[in-house]
């Protein structure tokens, strides 16, 4: 009776470079994220994390290189195809119009809808599930613009979930959240079974929850691999310009980075 789950997709970033005018934002980055894996994108401000993610959800066309979702080049596919496979959780959304929380979440279904197709019970079920999952039921008729930063981020995550994505792209999803919600979100992403690529700032939380990490520095890939291999004192010194102490989490043994 229960339908099969949507399988997570494989994400390949192949030699992607991006520039804005004369400035190189991302230089020749290659990354693979296996289906269902969670990849954390780390790096100081301006390292090119957001820019790289933009190439994945088809906002910025790479100057060179390709982004492949299950082997399909996102720039050779229509925008709607990409939106059916890749869900993006942006940092924020402009709120010039009185859209309700439900309106915003419902937008996630657009790419799945044929011309003139109304919202069906199927869509309503997905929207309802996403609202419930993000604990937004009581807020669903509130105008989006009256929400706090953290609530908005949960709405945008719910919106991405009703896209039924095979890959989730998140641009600093924890930046407006308190510690409890940060942990809840990362745990949720880890358990979701969806392929995840997320730009994160907190090295320790990233090390705890991500399968692999990718450290970026001025548009380049400084290191990629399991957390304990990426987060070495030497690299953190080179990339962040701080003197770190590397320890182990006393509970679960994950890498712990402290200012030295």
């Amino acid at each position: 009776m229960s339908a099969p789950l949507i399988p997570p997709a494989r994400l390949d970033i192949e030699g992607v470079s991006l520039r804005a005018g004369e400035t190189a934002l991302v230089r020749d980055i290659s990354l693979q994220v296996a289906p269902g894996q969670m990849m954390g994108l780390l790096g100081p401000n301006g390292a090119g994390k957001s820019s790289l993610l933009r190439a994945v959800y088809r906002m910025s066309r790479p100057e060179t290189g390709r982004v492949l979702v299950n082997g399909e080049d996102v720039w050779k596919r229509p925008a709607a195809w990409v939106a059916r496979h890749v869900g993006a959780v942006l940092q924020d959304m402009p709120a010039d119009f009185p859209l309700t929380v439900r309106d915003v979440v419902a937008m996630g279904r657009s790419a799945h809808k044929a011309l003139l197709e109304p919202d069906l019970p199927h869509d309503a079920a997905l929207i309802g599930a996403a609202l419930a999952l993000q604990r937004l039921e009581t807020l669903q008729d509130r105008p989006f613009r009256t929400l706090s930063g953290g609530e908005r981020q949960r709405v945008l995550l719910a919106r991405a979930l009703v896209q039924q994505p095979q890959v989730l792209v998140l641009d600093e999803p924890t930046n407006h959240l308190d510690l409890r919600h940060q942990i809840a979100l990362l745990q949720f992403l880890k358990d979701s079974g969806i392929t995840v690529i997320a730009a994160l700032h907190d090295l320790n939380l990233a090390a705890m929850y991500c399968d692999r990490l990718c450290l970026m520095d001025r548009g380049r890939l400084a290191a990629e691999g399991p957390p304990e291999e990426v987060l070495t004192a030497e690299r953190i010194r080179a990339v962040y310009g701080i003197e770190p102490l590397i320890a182990r989490h006393p509970g679960n043994g994950s890498v712990w980075v402290l200012p030295g």
């Binding site: 229960s2 339908a3 789950l5 069906l120 199927h122 996403a130 419930a132 039924q164 079974g193």
Partner: peptide, 19 residues
């Protein structure tokens, strides 16, 4: 709830919903 969101959609058509 997550399982609902990740389930393959039922075939297209009017009565399209989850069992």
């Amino acid at each position: 709830l997550l399982a609902i969101l990740r389930r393959e959609p039922p075939p297209r058509g009017r009565g399209r919903t989850f069992p």
